[in-house]
C-alpha cells in the first residue's frame, strides 16, 4: 500500500508543501488564480514549528483502525479500499467536529470548500491527492518537497529500508567502522546558519 511518509529530521520548515497542497486542492489548480479564489484554498498539510529550529510537517496519517470513521455521525468519512486512503464526502459532512476531536494528529480543520458552498464549514484533511495518485502521479506535497522530508512509496518497502539502515549502523558501530551521516551535509549547514541567526543579539 503506497503512502506519504514523513522524515522529520529532513524538514527545514520551508512550507513548499503547504503551497503545493493548497494549489492542488483549489478550484483552478493554478497558483496565480488560486490566491483570488473564494473561498481561499487552504493547505491540508501543516508545517509546525516545534523545539528550537525543528519543524514538523503534520498531516492525516490515514490510520487503521480509524477513529474519525468510527465516530462520524453523518457517515461522511470512508476508506477507499484500493488506495487505502481516508476520504471525506464534503456533501455529507455537517462540520460537527467529532472527527477533529478524536484525531490523535489534529489533522482535521474546518473551512468552507469550493466543492460545496462558501458559507458552510466542512472538514478538511489530507486525501493523499486522490486525483493525482489515481492518475499515477505522486502527491503534490511530495513533489514539492526539496529536502526529502516527504516521500511516497510502499509502506512495507519503507519499513524494510529503514530497518536495514538501522541494522547496518548497529553493525558498523559494533565493528568500530565510521558511520556515514544520514542527514545531508547541506541541511546541517543550513541548520547551523539558522541557529546562529536565531541567536543574534542574545547575551552569551
Amino acid at each position: 500500500m503506497k503512502t506519504v511518509y514523513i522524515k522529520p529530521e529532513n524538514c527545514i520548515g520551508c512550507k513548499h508543501c503547504e503551497v503545493a497542497c493548497a494549489v492542488e486542492h483549489s478550484e483552478t489548480k493554478n497558483l496565480y488564480s488560486a490566491i483570488s479564489e473564494e473561498p481561499l484554498p487552504i493547505s491540508k498539510i501543516h508545517v509546525m514549528p516545534t523545539f528550537g529550529i525543528m519543524a514538523y510537517p503534520g498531516k492525516c496519517m490515514h490510520c487503521d483502525p480509524t477513529p474519525c470513521i468510527q465516530v462520524c455521525p453523518s457517515g461522511a468519512i470512508s476508506r477507499d479500499k484500493e488506495t487505502d486512503t481516508i476520504l471525506i464526502n464534503e456533501e455529507k459532512c455537517i462540520g460537527c467536529g467529532m472527527c477533529a476531536i478524536v484525531c490523535p494528529f489534529s489533522a482535521v480543520l474546518f473551512n468552507p470548500s469550493w466543492r460545496v458552498s462558501v458559507d458552510r464549514d466542512v472538514a478538511h484533511k489530507c486525501d493523499n491527492c486522490f486525483e493525482r495518485i489515481t492518475n499515477d502521479l505522486i502527491p503534490a506535497c511530495v513533489e514539492a518537497c526539496k529536502t526529502g522530508a516527504l516521500g511516497y512509496g510502499d509502506i512495507n518497502e519503507i519499513i524494510r529500508e529503514e530497518r536495514r539502515a538501522v541494522g547496518k549502523t548497529a553493525a558498523q558501530l559494533a565493528a568500530a567502522i565510521p558511520v556515514e551521516e544520514k542527514i545531508p551535509e547541506l541541511l546541517k549547514v543550513w541548520r547551523d546558519l539558522a541557529l546562529s541567526m536565531s541567536q543574534v543579539g542574545e547575551k552569551k
Binding site: 509546525m48 516545534t50 514538523y56
Partner: peptide, 19 residues
C-alpha cells in the same frame, strides 16, 4: 497556541536518536 502535535512527534524521533 504554540503547542502542536509536531512537538510530540519530534520528541519521539529524538528518543530514537535520529538527530
Amino acid at each position: 497556541n504554540k503547542f502542536n502535535v509536531g512537538m510530540i512527534e519530534i520528541e519521539a524521533a529524538m528518543l530514537q536518536e535520529i538527530f
